[in-house]
Simulated scan of single mutants.
Amino acid sequence: MCTTAAAATARNVRAEPRVRLGLPDTVDVVMLQGEAECFPDENVPADAADAYTATFGWDPRVEEGSHLYLRVVPRTVYAWRGTAELRGRVLMRDGEWLD
């Protein structure tokens, strides 16, 4: 992920790296809980920045102002489709995939 360095998201993640992400929408949901690592645009590994640009068609490195790249390492993954509460939706716990 990438955001401007001055954004509320950047400030919040710097203060508290534990994050929860809901992807992609409210019907078919994958929820990740994990920890974010922050990389200012001048310190992001070139291969990671290149992969970001290839995936999203936007290169923050050529924009004005500072940006912050975020890499989230998932610790727990939940998934469900069309129903908010289903048993057995935990797919990962403590960074380990469940069977």
Rank of each mutant, 00 (worst) to 15 (best):
T4W: 03
E42M: 08
T53Q: 13
T53S: 15
Y69D: 00
D50F: 03
M31V: 15
T55Y: 06
M1D: 08
G22L: 12
V72G: 01
A8E: 11
E63I: 05
M1H: 03
L98C: 09
A79N: 09
G22H: 13
A84W: 03
W97D: 00
P24V: 03
D94N: 11
V73N: 14
E42S: 12
D59Y: 11
P45V: 03
A79P: 01
D41Q: 04
V30D: 02
V19C: 11
T3P: 03
L91H: 14
V13T: 07
A84N: 04
E63V: 08
A84Y: 04
A51R: 06
N43A: 14
E63L: 07
S66R: 15
T4A: 05
R71V: 13
P74M: 02
T55W: 11
R14M: 07
D25F: 02
W97K: 02
V30M: 05
P24N: 09
P60G: 08
R61C: 03
V13A: 05
V73S: 14
Y52F: 15
A51T: 07
E16F: 07
V77N: 06
D25C: 06
L23N: 06
N43C: 05
L70A: 05
L98D: 06
R11K: 12
D25A: 07
Y52I: 13
A84T: 05
F39I: 02
E35I: 11
D50S: 07
D59S: 07
T53P: 04
H67L: 02
G88W: 05
L23M: 10
A15S: 12
G95V: 07
D94I: 11
V90S: 02
V19I: 14
T4S: 09
R11N: 11
G22Y: 07
V30E: 03
E63T: 05
S66F: 00
A54K: 15
A51N: 06
A5G: 08
T83P: 01
P60S: 13
L70P: 09
L86G: 02
R20H: 10
A48F: 13
G88F: 04
P60I: 01
L68P: 08
M92C: 08
A15F: 00
E63F: 07
A51G: 09
C38D: 13
R11Q: 14
M31A: 12
T55G: 12
E63D: 13
F56L: 12
Q33Y: 14
L23Q: 09
Q33D: 10
D25T: 04
L86A: 11
Q33S: 12
T4Y: 01
S66E: 13
L68W: 10
T3K: 10
D47N: 14
R71I: 09
R20C: 15
V30S: 01
E35G: 08
R87Q: 04
A54Q: 15
M92R: 06
G34N: 11
V72P: 02
V30T: 07
R87T: 08
D59E: 08
M92P: 02
R93P: 00
H67I: 06
C38L: 15
R11A: 12
R81P: 00
L32Y: 15
V73I: 10
V19W: 09
C2E: 10
N12A: 15
W97M: 14
L32M: 14
P24M: 06
A15M: 05
A10C: 02
G88I: 01
E85V: 15
R87W: 08
A54P: 10
G22R: 09
T26F: 04
T76L: 00
A15W: 00
R87H: 07
